[in-house]
Write a protein that binds this DNA or RNA. Structure first.
Lengths: 141, 141
DNA sequence: CTGAATCCCTGACGATACTG
DNA sequence: CAGTATCGTCAGGGATTCAG
């Protein structure tokens, strides 16, 4: 029976616990990239309704066409988003969350909920830290 | 009363919902970087026990000294980790989770729990996607 | 309308060597 | 022991242009 912390296996040694990197890292890295959460959030607004490429893009004003394409492709590759292509003229493509994509929403909500409740304090901490750092370098002159 | 999804404010327009980027992005980006979650996980193994720099490093064999320093400093800046410096010879520095850092653990656990239950399926999806892609480019020759 | 291809730049990250 | 300084590499990501 392997011990885990946050889904990560680790071994007890006389020098303390040792974490061994594993696949879930890549999932977190994906979710942590610049646009993925925003795209997931857009699709989560009404999980039952597929959205067109341009609708998603309108919902995220600052994303470039290239990055939206890449982000959606990665989500499709991970099985979180379903892509449906209609061979019409002009072409139409719709995206929606897969079943697995939908099961992620509560966990995502839990995490972003914590952020919602704490980001002001984080912001304050960052400013205090930066101020203290600036003062140290000033006194060093 | 502003509407939010995943802690992110958005506006309804006739063209659909529009997400406006805000500070929490930077929190998720921080957590999503290469080492932060691993360091948090190490400190979370026994939240009551402060760890020395070298203990943390031993627990994450692949991290470089530089990246551990940077990761810890960022966590300290965000107010998630407390750094205690002892002016001894040789010097000793201990790190532990702050109160806010500890409140993050359940949310983190929820998220990584979802990953733990789904990463095999994600892995399968990735392989299927890559296989299909390889086949398409093969048939194109 | 959707997406591929190209160019380029910035920043994250690693390796190494040095310091209090 | 813990951290800094410096350098080099490489992928993420933006702007632009082309294609089906």
């Amino acid at each position: 029976m392997e011990k885990t912390i946050h889904g990560r296996p680790y071994k007890e040694t006389k020098r303390g616990p040792v974490l061994t990197p594993c696949a879930p890292n890549s999932v977190l890295a994906r979710l942590g990239d610049k646009w993925t959460i925003l795209v997931m959030s857009i699709l989560a607004l009404d999980p039952a309704r597929p959205l067109r490429f341009s609708e998603i893009r309108t919902g995220i004003p600052d994303i470039s066409q290239r990055m939206l394409t890449l982000t959606l492709r990665n989500l499709e590759r991970d099985g979180l988003v379903l892509r449906r292509y209609f061979a019409e003229v002009p072409p139409r493509v719709e995206y929606e969350l897969t079943a697995m994509g939908k099961t992620m929403l509560p966990a995502l909500e839990g995490f972003t909920g914590w952020i919602r409740e704490n980001w002001q304090e984080i912001e304050r901490s960052r400013q205090a830290f930066d101020a203290a750092e600036a003062e140290r370098s000033a006194s060093g002159t």
